[in-house]
């Protein structure tokens, strides 16, 4: 524990949880995208075995940190450990299946100024239309839960609220099946670990007095919710139906819409070699310009 507490915390930065090989690819592409659009941003990857991260990915990460208390089978089940694993005072946790296509300076300033911990409860589809999140509405209607998205959130280290949140998240995430069974009727229990549902429970329990009433801090295009809302029909994967295009400067388009804020794509098939290489090239040329 003393060793864990000795991880010095300074500045602000992004923490990306990743444990699988494909998540290392995603995390690296995400880190490239963060650093291309956010000069001097610090990025840490948190994983179960740092020696499994391919060597040629190391350059983009400022920190590679091992999960301090072992790991659960599902990557995002380990979110509770990030409080102790983060090397930053101010942390944005971001799912590896994401890309950042905008500058976050003003977002950082607002979050640091206003919040100890902050989850976002708005998401958009690829056309920038607000999503209803029909799948999770049942938890709001029947269980009076505060619905939030778990793919991206902010917390400030050494605050009571963030500590309480992650302390409760520890038993909740480690025993997620029991938690879902305790809270929900059988017909509403997710069969697999659902990070949005888990963080919605934790938000309802811990942050009921500190609800995020300012919903428009950040714009996130959430493709898994776009799919589950039925915006593009019934498909197993949104990539089965929608075209994605990439061009110079790591520009990414879904259908005719350019992604210029934050994209949570959530689908392994999305990150093609072409998109990965595009982000690597953009990062390399940005880094060269910085030098």
């Amino acid at each position: 524990m003393s060793e864990i507490n000795s991880i010095p915390k300074e500045g602000r930065g992004y923490v990306i949880p990743a444990m699988q090989d494909f998540e290392y690819d995603q995390a690296t592409a995400l880190a490239y995208s963060i650093k291309t659009n956010n000069k001097d941003a610090k990025v840490a990857i948190v994983t179960n075995y740092t020696d499994r991260i391919p060597h040629h990915y190391h350059e983009v990460f400022d920190h590679m940190i091992t999960l301090p208390y072992g790991s659960s089978e599902t990557t995002r089940c380990n979110d509770w450990q990030i409080y102790w694993a983060t090397p930053f005072v101010d942390t944005i946790v971001i799912d590896s299946a994401s890309l950042v296509k905008e500058n976050h300076d003003s977002v950082w300033e607002f979050l640091i100024d206003q919040y100890d911990i902050c989850f976002f409860n708005k998401a958009h589809n690829f056309k920038s239309e607000l999503l209803e999140n029909k799948k999770l509405q049942i938890y709001k209607q029947d269980y009076d839960m505060d619905i939030v998205y778990g793919n991206m959130y902010y917390f400030k280290h050494d605050t009571d609220l963030a500590l309480a949140y992650h302390k409760l998240a520890d038993p909740f995430q480690q025993n997620w099946r029991d938690v879902f069974a305790k809270y929900f009727k059988e017909q509403h229990r997710p069969k697999y670990y659902n990070n949005d549902v888990m963080h919605s429970i934790l938000n309802t329990v811990i942050l009921f007095e500190n609800k995020n009433i300012n919903n428009d801090i950040i714009n996130i295009v959430n493709m898994p919710t776009t799919l589950s809302d039925g915006n593009i029909g019934m498909w197993n994967r949104w990539t089965d139906r929608l075209n994605t295009w990439t061009s110079n400067g790591a520009k990414v388009k879904i259908q005719n819409f350019a992604m210029h804020t934050n994209l949570y794509y959530g689908e392994q098939e999305f990150l093609t070699e072409e998109i990965f290489d595009g982000h690597k090239q953009a990062f390399t040329s940005t880094a060269k310009r910085g030098d």
Partner: peptide, 9 residues
Amino acid sequence: LGTKRILQQ
């Protein structure tokens, strides 16, 4: 492939 993207390339 069992997919149905609107455009192909």
